[in-house]
Nucleic acid binder design. Sequence first.
DNA 1: GTAGGGTTAG
Length: 684
Amino acid sequence: MLSSPDPQSLATAVELAIAARSARLGRAAHAQIVKCLSPLVPSFLSNHLVNMYSKLDLPSAAASTLALDPVPSVVSWTALISGAAQNGRALPALLHFTAMLRASVRPNDFTLPSTFKAAAALRHSLAGRQLHSFSLKTGLINDVFVACGALDMYYKTGLALEARQMFDEMPHKNIVAWNAVMTNAVLDGRPGEAIDAFSKLRLSGESPNTISLCAFFNACAGASYLWLGAQLHAFVIQSGFDSDMSVGNGLIDFYGKCHCVDEARAVFDGMPTKNDVSWCSMIVVYAQNGAEEEAFNVYLDARREGIKPTDFIVSSVLTTCAGLSGLDLGRSVHAVAIRSCIDGNIFVGSALVDMYGKCGSISDAEQAFREMPDRNLVSWNAMIGGYAHYGDAHMALAVFDEMINSGEVAPNYVTLVNVITACSRGGMTREGLDLFETMRERFGIQPRTEHYACVVDLLGRAGMEERAYEFIKEMPVRPSVSVWGALLGACRVHGMTELGRIAAEKLFEIDPQDSGNHVLLSNMFASAGRWEEATEVRKEMKDVGIKKGPGCSWIIWKNVVHVFQAKDTTHERNDEIQAMLAKLRREMQAAGYVPDTQYALYDLEEEEKETEVLQHSEKLALAFGLICIPPGIPIRITKNLRVCGDCHRAIKFISGIVGREIVVRDNNRFHHFKDYQCSCRDYW
DNA sequence: GTAGGGTTAG
């Protein structure tokens, strides 16, 4: 007969399974232990096994292994509790702790930190206090690990005063205590306090470690302290910390939040090893700095590198797709989410609702919303925002009522912005005003400047510009750019040139460099035939050195973004596009279309104006779409400015002539064109 | 043999 393996080598096999993070190896080691040593499995092997199952996040295997130990030791219990706490199962962790006490096993200095962590995760300050007094009575609080656990727990349960007091009273402040102070200051939105703690830490003679550095960069990112963070980056390079992955990830995020995209990329490219967090951070840097295409490319690179699409990555990329208005890209990411079994994650779900809403597929947004296993405030806001974008005020209000009645979550200021915007787009002026006037008493939400802007927009769209102006004059807070911008936009649509000029001048005062407002004013004069004033505004822009961000429209076809500017002839299929435009012009005119040349931007002869409006970017993009997208597939165009009035009329005609569905998303809302009609019913 | 503080998203 073969000699059995000795218990020590069996323990080694269990440890190897942990190191390899392999449940298969772990189960094999367990089977071998049972085969060789049953029924007398020594307690120390039982400890190893519980630890192994806990670390591999197999909670029921861990619990049943412990249950089969006739005398489970403090080590087994501790492994069970810490496994639960580390893997986000805070309530089971606390339940194990009480079960341990009931079994008359005394917790030790290794048990308490994990238990504090569980109480902190549950935001349960009473459980935390109870654990704290337990630590005091047993004297375990004198252990620095236990004290740090209590400190962190007090911060996370919102008792910052108790936490500070504990910290001040600690006889020996180790690096973990300092780090807990810093990370919690950042989490609670007090980056200055974290930076302050970092300098005190250095004065105390303690050396910062990678976690202190992460917290520091995080604080600099939150406060946009570019200079301070860049200085510490130099220190990081000197001290060799830059090869650490977490520090690198923190640096990427820091530079991204300070809008230094190239620096973030340089850190990313220079990292010796990258993980999913590094890739995700890089995607977010591009997405949050207006480079959605680049963000999507980084995602594709990550997939090619074999990076697992995590819930973080997928929700970030979905936001990118929303920004690009890339419905097909978004759908493909949705498929990835399903295959990776993360479509039930609340972040992913909300991002899906948001993406489908912003890409104009409201039924998909609704479906994604209804299928979410859990919903929170952000999910509801995304759904209401989707209907607002779509211009369906009735559905936005219906979902809003459903949210209130469900009692799941209370609305916040974003919710109110979305509902009032929906009322504005859908022409429900009375309902929108009612919501604004009662939001404070009904929902306890203080109106912010965003809400005032919504109301100005609401009145302006309904043709009540003068009333909107009176409303602005009576505002208790200083009107922001968006408030005056809403008035200017309304004046442009309704040809209220004089009031528009007042709004524009206020805008120039607040933000003299913004090109959009100058262009809007100039266009308004042009529409009114006041060419001299229009030219004057343009000239002023040139003199002050304002660069005009070009208006452009784009269309995504076969994963390629095709961008067009007005009068753009640079596209490789320009000849076909021009031929298509000429053909459309003839057919539209036969159907009764007359070009609306008030939207031409220059003082030209009538015929030249007609040619000018024909070359607007949305028409070029549409012509391109008609050439390459097969019949039956809706054509989706996105524009970075508001769609022009002539283009709106023309596209209504074209949708009927070619018998196709055309969806235009401008910076304001969606227009679904079908059979000579638009979903906005010409009210926008 | 068992433990603490961490980077990314809607």
